[in-house]
Write a protein that binds this DNA or RNA. Structure first.
Length: 459
DNA sequence: GGAACTCGCCAC
DNA sequence: AAACGTGGCGAGTTCC
């Protein structure tokens, strides 16, 4: 790795950052250990039950005939051999090393009742063995002390381990409930989460200074994801109040087009993700009954056909045009920045971040473009974390900073101090940060989420 | 018996 | 022309 702390400022940020992160590590996070042990038992029982049901399936007969005593339902290698060699199924997808894949998406494409049990067992084991088990294993007197490292990541972000506090389930409702139920505040306290809104996109603006994106980020009512949803799904207006289902389309555009495009993806793979999201088939001509149902009463397959996109192939051509317009017209200044930024790297062999770090060594185009944005965004969070942690110490708060997840901070708040802490948080994140770093050319704002007093990390 | 690998899957 | 950025970690497997 050829990353270096270029400037005195960068050194100081990481020096002070490591001190305050160490303070948070020492503070630690309270665990409902009673819940953890009870839930672990419950999940074990669930796994036993699911395995019994799995035993009764036809697929398992083949599995036992093949592997006998060596049968192991947790082995993906065995599963791949059963499906793709013994049963002669053609793998719907392949792994990077060209073997038949057996991940969730792939197994869902194969019509076999046993696979449903395998997936449910996998999910349950993940919650039990990765999250609850590591919480129990790493806890000391009912407190976990996740590490927050500043020396492991190529982009100068942070990482976390023992246990990893930065990948606790959130999107999957069931997993979220199982895992976050274990995280609780100090007695009488409440958890608080402070998230920067769209931090990476805002920080990208500080590099490329695209005027269209500037408007998208600063004008009230502007919404790039809604705009792109309208283009992708060919609608005059995406009105979420009148048609709540349209929020699904906005989400699809955000996670299936806009963000992947920013990371360096292209329309070809966007098309698969988007089709999957709205349940449109990736083969053949779309039917009126295809796809999710909109609040207008129409299915999206019918809507797309009426609008002139009649099949997945048509959708590909449509998305190609949208991509062309996205970079060629809408964000052409951003596009030019990317080009220049990469060419400059090719000339110099490194690129520097706005926060004073140097990324060097052999990098691919997407890496060169993404590293500075990803790193600088985290540095904004780290700067705020340092200021807040210092204030907490100097002013003798009972409120403690306990963790950080790239663009958010997690606090264990004493309710008496709550209003003052929120005031301080907003002062640091929304005012002081911009004054301290003049290169931040857009307003930054945070969401403050509060959880119940004595309640877990769940709403 | 441990290091290094693959795969799958969780987060931003 | 090519084509999604950053991590940690559990389990299985392979190799020495």
């Amino acid at each position: 790795m050829e990353q270096t702390l270029l400037s005195q400022d960068a050194y100081r940020l990481f020096h002070n950052g490591s001190l305050e992160l160490a303070e948070a590590e020492m503070n630690g996070i309270y665990l409902d250990t009673n819940y953890c042990t009870k839930k672990t038992v419950a999940l074990s029982r669930k796994i036993t039950y699911l395995q019994k049901r799995l035993e009764q399936t036809e697929l398992i007969k083949v599995w036992r005939e093949t592997y006998g005593d060596k049968t192991n339902f947790n082995s993906d290698a065995q599963l791949a051999k059963i499906l793709y060699s013994k049963m002669g199924i053609t793998p719907p997808n392949y792994t990077p090393s060209k073997r038949g894949a057996v991940d969730e998406k792939t197994l869902m494409e194969i019509d076999n009742p046993a696979l449903d049990y395998i997936l449910r067992i996998r999910k349950t084991k993940k919650n039990k063995d990765t999250y609850l088990a590591s919480f129990i294993r790493e806890s000391v007197d009912g407190i976990i002390h996740p590490f927050f490292n500043l020396n492991t990541v190529r982009t100068f972000r942070s990482s976390s381990n023992n246990p990893n506090f930065q990948n606790i389930p959130k999107r999957n409702k069931e997993a979220k409930k199982i895992c976050r139920r274990a995280i609780i505040p100090r007695p009488g306290h409440q958890l608080m989460e402070v998230d920067f809104s769209a931090l990476e996109v805002n920080i990208s603006q500080c590099y490329h200074k695209d005027p269209t994106m500037y408007r998208d980020l600063t004008e009230p009512g502007a919404d790039m994801h809604r705009d792109m949803a309208q283009e992708i799904f060919i609608m005059d207006s995406i009105n979420n109040e009148k048609y709540p289902s349209h929020d699904t389309l906005r989400q699809a555009a955000k996670n299936g087009f806009v963000f992947p495009q920013f990371y360096g993806d292209y329309f070809g793979s966007n098309a698969f993700y988007l089709s999957d999201w709205v349940k449109l088939p990736t083969e053949g001509v779309w039917k009126d009954s295809d796809g999710i149902r909109l609040d207008t009463g129409e299915n999206i397959g019918s809507h797309m056909r009426r609008s002139g996109v009649r099949s997945f192939r048509g959708f590909l051509r449509h998305l190609e045009q949208i991509e062309k317009h996205f970079w060629g017209v809408r964000y052409s200044v951003y596009r030019d920045w990317r080009k220049r930024w990469y060419e400059e790297y090719q000339k110099k062999g490194y690129c520097d971040t706005l926060t004073g770090f140097r990324c060097g060594g052999v990098m691919k185009r997407n890496e060169v473009i993404n590293y500075p944005i990803q790193g600088s965004a985290f540095h904004c969070l780290l700067w705020c974390f340092i200021q807040l942690s210092r204030a907490a110490r100097k002013e003798g708060w009972r409120t403690k900073l306990i963790g950080q997840i790239h663009d958010s901070m997690i606090l264990d708040v004493c309710p008496d101090e709550r209003e003052y802490v929120i005031k301080k948080v907003r002062q640091i994140t929304e005012k002081d940060l911009r004054e301290s770093w003049e290169w931040i050319v857009v307003p930054l704002s945070v969401d403050v989420d509060l959880y119940e007093i004595n309640g877990p990390w769940l709403s």
